[in-house]
């Protein structure tokens, strides 16, 4: 079960993360960090990291463009981690059964929060008229309330009262509806693909498709080799070395090198006497969420 202090800490985090995302963007407001922090609070960091990581990938391309509401993967990750740890759910299943529906439902509360803030904007107008400078600042800072409460209230309520319902769902998914439970686990594993596809719509893939192929091919080959090496290393008796999985940082460095090469060649062309036509064909990011 989820203890009372865990409910309080998770609720406080739910309120903090949206303010962080709006302001300093420390990345503690990212879904992967939401899973990590919830994991620490719940006492099972690994489950939190798995859920947070999967939610991070699912919303990878979903940025906030021009103030559009986006699927609230953070609250989803918090609730999924809490229930997965408390009720010993399979993390993958928790992603599809809890994190995704919660994240989608929370969109309407984000809209509500943004809407509620209009009230304070009008109060500020009145204070400007009255030349009440302190009042302007006070009413501006009160905008914090709709923002954080729109997360804290649903997350807190779900944590405090949701356990019974979730417990029933888990029981059914692993009993009479096992096919559904298994299916949701598979879905949890496939969901990051949505994040990648959304992202590809925002990135200029047509211009840089070669790098997409490079990234995929390098990684698919290495990950297979590393995967089997790990398997072999683990099964050979007397083998003392430790073989880890494919380090993603190494792959990211390859990508960084390609980016650096492109940047350097770009600068050279830019310095050439014939000022290259700098027409902006970057216009892939045209409007709000797809």
């Amino acid at each position: 079960m989820i203890l009372w202090w865990q409910v309080i800490l998770l609720t406080l985090y739910a309120g903090y993360q949206i303010l962080d995302e709006l302001q300093i963007y420390s990345s503690l407001s990212a879904p992967v960090a939401a899973g990590f922090i919830s994991g620490i609070i719940m006492g099972d960091v690994k489950t939190g990291l798995i859920i947070g990581g999967a939610m991070q990938l699912t919303v990878l391309g979903v940025g906030t463009f021009g103030g559009a509401s986006k699927i609230d993967a953070n609250s989803g990750a918090v609730l999924a981690t809490a229930f997965a740890v408390a009720l010993k759910m399979d993390p993958q299943q928790a992603i599809a059964t809890i994190a995704v529906p919660v994240a989608a439902l929370m969109v309407s509360l984000d809209v509500l929060g943004r809407f509620a803030n209009t009230f304070f904007a009008h109060r500020i107008d009145a204070k400007v008229e009255a030349e009440d400078y302190k009042g302007i600042q006070r009413n501006f800072l009160m905008g914090m309330i709709p923002w954080s409460f729109s997360r804290m209230i649903p997350v807190g309520l779900a944590l405090a009262f949701g356990a019974g319902v979730v417990k029933e769902i888990v029981k059914v998914l692993n009993g009479p509806l096992l096919w559904l439970g298994n299916g949701l686990t598979v879905a949890g594993a496939v969901l990051p693909a949505v994040g990648f596809a959304i992202l590809l719509h925002y990135l200029p893939v047509k211009k840089h498709f070669a790098y997409l192929i490079l990234g995929f091919t390098f990684t698919t080959l290495f990950t297979t080799v590393f995967g089997y090496a790990q398997l072999l290393g683990g099964s050979i008796k007397g083998f003392s070395g430790v073989i880890n999985g494919l380090p993603m940082l190494a792959i990211a460095l390859l990508g960084l090198a390609f980016a650096a090469i492109s940047y350097q060649t770009g600068q050279k062309i830019g310095n050439a006497p014939k000022a290259a036509s700098s027409n902006n064909d970057e216009g892939e990011i045209e409007d709000d969420e797809i």
Binding site: L57, F196, L199, L200, L203, H208, G215, F216, T219, G255
Partner: peptide
């Protein structure tokens, strides 16, 4: 432009590792 190249490259890498089906 350079950052988008890295972004596209990373998406390729992620497709190869993170979609486990």
């Amino acid at each position: 432009d350079a950052a988008t190249i890295m972004g596209v490259f990373m998406v390729g890498a992620l497709v190869a590792t993170m979609v486990n089906v």
